[in-house]
Amino acid sequence: MESEGLHLNIDYVGSSGVVLSPEQKAALQTSLVILQNENKFHKVYFWGKIVGVKEDYFVAQGFDKDEFAGRKTFYSKDCIHWGLLPPATKMMRDQSKLAKGRFTGDPSYEYEHVETKKVGEGEDATEEEETLTIKEEDRLASVITEIDEDVRIVPRAAFIKTPTGQVISNRSFEGLSVSEAAKLCNYFHFREPQLISEQSILQRASLDKAIDFMDSVEEDIPRGSWSLQFERGSGLVTLRSLLWQGYIFCHVPGQRKFGSVYFGTGEKNLDLPFML
């Protein structure tokens, strides 16, 4: 959710239990402007909050003009002071999946994972234990990246891809109509396309390459992982992810207003295929 007008726009997702206190709103409104100016970002988004056992992490992201490139992620525990998270490498993400349980709220906390390895062959084989330490700061960066890849979405035509390959905000976007907003095919994953099936390639070949360059959430597996609802009559549409419970996207049909936040524990709902 864009930092500009955050204190007003955050109320769109209030029905889902996403609430910030007046003090937190005021602190974010000021500190995110400072964060943007200090780092010379084109835009700063309030990403959401990951709830910890002792303390919570408030998360923000800064972008250059090309919103597919140059993304930096920051975290704060008081909505005022921000720390830069390291980029999530593949090894970091693989190791972070071994850490179980809730976040503690301490970035320097280390999880321990014990692996048993077999050494030798036959009767001479022995088992050795190897302890792997995972820093919570690395796990936080990995989980945020995974949530962005899995469920961060935008309305169709809200962004365009220029002939040079840059992804920028579409100034001509005036919002989805009420009938368009009711269809999952009009919401795209805000990342590079990953679906490479023959059917998706043929479908994309006949579409507008400047607009339809991302994957539609309609093709997500498992089917039914999104809950779409209208609120305030047809004045607001919300999409909630059942895969990452706590992620919510909202859009005002007929207007440029849209955004998303994540308020949760940072744990993926791995049981979803059995629940549908």
Rank of each mutant, 00 (worst) to 15 (best):
H42L: 04
P22E: 02
K25C: 15
F46N: 01
S31K: 08
I34W: 06
Y45L: 08
G52C: 01
V33S: 08
V19M: 14
N37G: 11
A26E: 11
I50Q: 03
Q24Y: 10
L20E: 01
T30A: 15
A27K: 09
K54I: 04
S31T: 05
L20F: 14
E38G: 06
Q24K: 12
Y45D: 01
K54N: 02
N39A: 09
H42I: 04
I34V: 14
D56Q: 01
T30F: 15
W47E: 03
V33I: 06
W47S: 04
K54L: 02
P22F: 05
G48C: 04
I50C: 03
H42V: 08
Q36E: 14
K43D: 10
K49G: 02
A27V: 14
A26P: 07
Y57E: 05
Y45H: 14
F41Y: 13
Q36D: 06
W47A: 06
L35S: 09
A26L: 13
L35K: 00
K43Y: 12
V51C: 01
D56H: 08
K49V: 09
T30R: 15
P22C: 11
H42P: 09
S16H: 15
A27S: 15
E38T: 13
Q29F: 15
N39Y: 10
Y57N: 02
Q24F: 12
S31D: 11
Q36P: 03
P22Q: 06
T30Y: 08
Q29V: 11
V33G: 04
V19G: 10
V51P: 01
V19P: 14
S16F: 15
F41T: 02
G52H: 01
G48T: 05
L28F: 12
K40M: 14
K40Y: 09
G48F: 03
G52L: 01
L20W: 14
E38R: 07
L20H: 04
G17S: 07
Q36W: 13
Q24P: 13
L20T: 06
S16N: 12
E23F: 10
A27P: 12
I34F: 04
K43M: 07
L28D: 07
V18N: 14
